[in-house]
Simulated assay, not measured.
Amino acid sequence: MSNNYLDPISRRRLPNYLTGLPSLSDWHQEAACAGFDTELFFPVKRGQAEAAVAICRRCPVVRRCHEHAMQLPESFGVWGGTAARERGWTHAGKRRKFEDGAEAS
């Protein structure tokens, strides 16, 4: 089954494997972070996420953003008011393991 989804920039048809992903377009435009520099939401050092999390606290779509981060999953950055580490990721983008050997879910 072919799709009719076009990339708005290149105007090329998007591959089928991308069209099944949850869309950001239905909610991200309402986000409190819209218009902010994206670097703010992808901190390099531990402790730099506070400013992004503060923006998330006043966001009307914070729950949807967090659900998006958990569904894909987003292994880097602040999504839905949580840093990657809080969502179970290491600084290298790998799932954290707990002392009992289980991976974060």
Score class of each variant (00 low, 15 high):
S75T: 11
G80A: 11
E39W: 15
V62T: 10
E74K: 14
R57Y: 05
C65P: 07
G88H: 04
G88S: 07
V53Q: 09
V53T: 04
P60F: 11
G88Q: 02
D37F: 13
E39N: 15
C59I: 06
V62E: 03
A92P: 02
V78G: 01
R87Y: 03
E67D: 14
H66A: 10
G77H: 08
R87V: 00
I55H: 01
F36H: 14
E67I: 04
F76Y: 15
A92G: 13
G77V: 08
I55C: 02
A84C: 10
E39A: 15
V44E: 13
E74T: 08
F42S: 10
V61E: 01
G81C: 07
V78P: 00
E50T: 09
C65S: 10
G93D: 04
G47S: 11
G77A: 12
A51M: 05
G88V: 02
H68W: 10
E67S: 12
A49L: 01
A69E: 02
V62K: 09
H91P: 10
H68C: 05
E74R: 14
R58N: 14
V62S: 03
C65L: 10
T82W: 03
Q71D: 11
G81E: 03
Q71F: 12
S75W: 07
T38I: 08
G47P: 06
P43I: 05
R85A: 11
T38G: 01
V61H: 00
V78Y: 02
L72Y: 14
R63E: 13
W79Y: 13
A49Y: 00
R58G: 15
G80Y: 03
E86M: 08
E86V: 04
D37K: 15
Q48G: 13
E67P: 02
D37Q: 13
K94A: 11
F36Q: 08
W89E: 05
A51Q: 10
R63Y: 04
V44G: 00
A52V: 06
E74Y: 07
Q48K: 11
G93M: 10
G93A: 09
E50M: 07
W89C: 06
G77S: 12
R57F: 02
G47K: 12
L40C: 03
